[in-house]
């Protein structure tokens, strides 16, 4: 029995990833029993999939790029489940990139739109 250092769920001895949270149980450096974070924990441990960020940018109207972020988020979890940590990290990078592209594009469109709206309002007066 191994206990996940991240969420505390018990896993079978041969488990690679926590069944509850997907944390890599074989990460080279784990949290100490006292709960402190050791250097390298973030790098070797959990691979973020940015799903929350991806859904936010998609629902806030930046469709094609937001969808790309969700697709990569799915890829992260698929590769984590298959034990392919390197592949998951690669997909994670792409998910993050598409999230920021979407957020940037959304912000840009928002600013342009606000400018247009202000100019439009002024020209009507």
């Amino acid at each position: 029995m191994i206990f996940c250092s991240q969420c505390g769920t018990s896993n079978t001895d041969d488990a690679i990833l926590c069944t509850q949270c997907g944390h890599n149980l074989r990460a080279p450096l784990e949290t100490s029993p006292a709960g402190g974070i050791q250097p390298g924990y973030r790098a070797g441990g959990h691979v973020p999939n940015y799903l929350v960020f991806a859904i936010v940018v998609t629902v806030l109207c930046c469709l094609p790029t937001g969808i790309a972020a969700i697709v990569y988020a799915a890829q992260v979890n698929a590769k984590l489940a298959a034990g392919d940590i390197a592949g998951a990290q690669e997909a994670s990078k792409n998910a993050k990139m598409w999230c920021w592209i979407s957020a940037g594009a959304g912000l840009l469109v928002g600013i342009l739109w606000a400018l247009l709206a202000i100019l439009g309002v002024m020209s009507h007066r």
Binding site: T19, L63, A74, L80
Partner: peptide
């Protein structure tokens, strides 16, 4: 606090399902 809440590990097929749902909904 330096720790996440217990992570929800969403299985990949669910996320792909969400993708399809968003496109169909659109």
């Amino acid at each position: 606090r330096g720790r996440y809440l217990p992570r929800i590990f969403v299985p990949a097929p669910w996320i792909r399902g969400l993708c399809v749902a968003v496109l169909v909904f659109a």
